[in-house]
Simulated scan of single mutants.
Amino acid sequence: MQQPPPSIFPIFRSRITCAVLTHTYVGDTENSVGELAEAAETDSGTMAREVSRLEQAGVLSSRHVGRTKLVRANQTAPFYGPLRDLVTITLGPAQVLAEELSRLNGVEEAAVFGSWAARMRGEPGPAPVDIDLLVIGRPDRDDLHEATARARSRLAREVNTVVITRARWEANEDGFIRELHSRPQVPVPIPMGDGE
Rank of each mutant, 00 (worst) to 15 (best):
I89Y: 12
N105Q: 13
V71T: 13
L101V: 11
A156F: 07
Y80P: 00
E158K: 15
F113I: 15
E158R: 05
F113K: 12
D130Q: 06
P126H: 05
K69M: 13
G106A: 11
E100N: 11
L144S: 10
K69G: 04
R72P: 04
D130A: 05
F79Q: 06
A94Y: 10
V87R: 05
V135N: 03
R150Y: 01
R154G: 07
R103H: 15
P126C: 03
T90I: 00
V107M: 12
R157M: 09
V162S: 07
P78C: 10
R84P: 13
G106N: 09
W116S: 14
V135R: 05
A117W: 01
R138C: 08
M120L: 15
E158L: 06
A94S: 15
E158D: 15
R72W: 06
L91Q: 00
H145Q: 08
D130V: 04
A156Y: 04
N105M: 08
A147I: 07
G137K: 00
E146C: 05
V135F: 11
Y80H: 10
P124N: 13
E158A: 10
L97R: 08
A111S: 10
P78S: 07
T76W: 12
H145A: 13
G92K: 01
A118E: 00
E100V: 03
W116M: 05
R121L: 02
T161P: 00
D132L: 02
V162Q: 01
N74T: 06
A127E: 13
L144G: 09
G137C: 12
H145S: 12
L133F: 05
D143M: 01
S153G: 09
G106P: 05
V71N: 05
A149F: 07
L86Q: 12
R72C: 03
L83D: 02
L134F: 03
